[in-house]
Amino acid sequence: MGNGASLSVTDMRRSTRHPVDYPVIAEHRVTGDMKLHVCNISAHGFMIDQAPSLARGDRLIVRLPVVGRIEAYCIWLTEDRAGFQFERIIRLDTFMAMIRELQPNPALRRRS
């Protein structure tokens, strides 16, 4: 994993992010399973806080409600956070169904 990921989707950080509080177990090809905390998510990727030892370009597989298993690549890191881009964009209807499960409090959901 030395060369990092070659990402095909351009910078999508302007996508609407939805705040979530979602613990997930991610599969890392080298280090195995790791516990992560997803704190926001969009149709293009997600951010974690309390980031474990990761490097830019690392690949993880996570399991999300409605979406199921999806691969994501680490595209940026700070001291305690990391941003991941999904290997594919999640369809809007699937994404909104996932958000309904991740944000059971309707007050947290953005207006469509």
Rank of each mutant, 00 (worst) to 15 (best):
R29T: 10
V30I: 06
V30G: 06
T31R: 15
T31P: 00
G32L: 06
D33G: 01
M34D: 03
K35C: 01
H37I: 12
H37C: 04
C39S: 04
C39A: 10
C39Q: 09
N40G: 04
I41W: 11
S42R: 12
H44W: 14
G45R: 01
F46N: 05
M47R: 15
I48W: 00
D49G: 12
D49T: 14
D49H: 06
D49M: 08
Q50W: 00
A51R: 14
S53C: 02
S53E: 15
L54N: 14
A55D: 13
A55C: 13
R56F: 01
G57L: 11
D58W: 09
R59H: 09
R59W: 04
L60S: 04
I61H: 08
V62Q: 10
V62I: 15
R63T: 09
L64R: 14
V66S: 05
V66T: 12
V66E: 13
V66Y: 05
V66L: 06
V67N: 11
V67S: 06
V67Y: 10
G68R: 14
G68V: 09
R69H: 15
R69M: 09
R69E: 08
I70S: 05
I70A: 05
E71S: 09
C74L: 13
C74V: 12
I75N: 04
I75D: 10
W76I: 01
L77A: 05
L77Q: 13
L77R: 12
T78L: 02
T78G: 07
T78A: 05
E79R: 13
E79Q: 10
D80W: 00
D80K: 07
R81N: 06
A82D: 09
G83M: 11
F84Y: 07
F84R: 07
Q85V: 12
Q85H: 07
Q85P: 00
F86K: 02
F86C: 03
F86W: 11
F86E: 15
R88E: 08
I90V: 10
I90D: 07
I90C: 02
L92N: 13
L92M: 11
L92E: 04
D93S: 06
T94W: 00
T94S: 10
T94A: 04
F95T: 04
M96C: 03
M96S: 02
A97Q: 15
A97I: 01
M98G: 02
R100I: 01
R100M: 11
E101K: 07
Q103T: 02
Q103R: 12
N105C: 06
L108T: 03
R109P: 01
R109W: 02
R110S: 03
R110L: 15
R110N: 06
R110I: 02
R111Q: 12
S112N: 14
S112H: 14
